Amino acid sequence: MLKYLGKDQFEGLEEAIAIAKSVGWGAADILRSYYRGESDRGELNIQEKKEGPVTAADIVTNQYILDQLEARFGTQDFGYLTEETYKFESKGVMSPPLSQEWIWIIDPLDGTRDFIEQTGEYAVQIALVHQNRPIAAVVVWPEAEKLYYALKGSGTFVETRQGNPTPVKVSQRQNIADLSLVVSRTHRDERFNYLLQNLPCKNQQYVGSVGCKIATIVEQKADIYISLSGKSAPKDWDIAAPELILTEAGGKFTYLDGSPLNYNRGDVNQWGCLIASNGQCHEQLCNQTKQILSQLDS
């Protein structure tokens, strides 16, 4: 179905994204039924794990996405890296990279704690990765009834249940002091708080899921998202789909040194400092963040 033509050109990518969009909406329906206590699949069954809570909604939605994608793409040329199957198969031990040419990276429920606490800020995230980089992505924000999707080199679009895709672009705000940060209500240690206190951009808003954070940026309601790992780090499935959604909307999403993110490397942890922005002063933001962190670590 898919063929790499060279120079970031792909055959069959439009069909792949159409399937991913359909699966994304189906996954959103499952999550919303649990969210409203209307699921016929049983109780939510919340379990606290080392990496955070897991619910029946995570597991059921994960299986739905896997079943749908595997039925269409098979397992010979396509690998599947998902939050729930990785936890089950690896048992905490680093796994080797998947060997297939095409890798689906899936987070069936990004923002599980926000799902449990009913903030509405949770998302379904599905990315297709080729040679360690995302080439197609879907992020669904179920409670906003919006689906964001992107293809490498083709821009980012948002659509509702009725379809009608509309292109989205990040803001053109350029003064770093005027930029707005989107941050989590939790996952904030002293080091991260120190960084926030010393950055020149003081406007902050709180949003849960990474997918919802990036949606907030491409909707021009915010401009910056920063991840600073501590005892844990975001995983491939937290970042892969949101990254392409942002970059195809004109933004930038890099490590602190400006290098690109890579996926399916064996270690699913995205350690270090990751910076996502509207791209207008990305290098300046990275440099100021470096200086602040070096002061803290010296």
Rank of each mutant, 00 (worst) to 15 (best):
S227W: 07
H187R: 15
E219Y: 09
K231N: 12
R191E: 15
Y225G: 10
F253D: 12
I226D: 05
L195F: 02
P167N: 02
V207K: 04
D236H: 10
E248V: 06
D238N: 12
C201I: 09
G250Y: 03
I214P: 00
Q204M: 13
I226T: 06
I226C: 03
S180T: 06
T247H: 03
S180D: 09
T254F: 03
R173W: 08
Y194Q: 03
L195Y: 03
Y255C: 09
R185H: 14
I226S: 08
Y206N: 13
R173M: 09
D238W: 15
L256G: 10
G250T: 08
L246K: 02
S229H: 03
V218A: 02
K221H: 15
Q220A: 10
Q204G: 05
V183D: 02
A249H: 04
H187Y: 15
N203D: 14
L246Y: 04
H187P: 12
G211Q: 02
F192S: 01
Y225A: 10
I217E: 05
I224Q: 00
Y225H: 11
I217S: 03
Q204T: 08
G211N: 02
V218E: 01
I176N: 01
A233L: 00
Y206W: 11
I224A: 02
N198S: 03
G211S: 02
S232E: 15
I214D: 06
I239F: 14
R185N: 11
P200S: 01
T216C: 15
L256C: 08
F192K: 00
N203I: 11
Y194L: 11
K169E: 13
G211C: 01
L195D: 09
L196N: 00
A241P: 01
E190M: 07
E219K: 12
I214F: 15
A249D: 12
D223H: 06
Y194E: 08
E219G: 07
I239V: 15
Q205W: 07
A222K: 01
D178Q: 11
S227R: 05
E219V: 09
Q204N: 07
V210K: 05
N198C: 01
A240G: 11
L181R: 08
E219N: 12
S227T: 07
Q205I: 08
T186Q: 07
E190H: 07
I176P: 00
K235N: 14
N203Y: 07
D189Q: 15
V170D: 11
N198H: 14
L196W: 00
K252T: 13
N193L: 13
I239M: 15
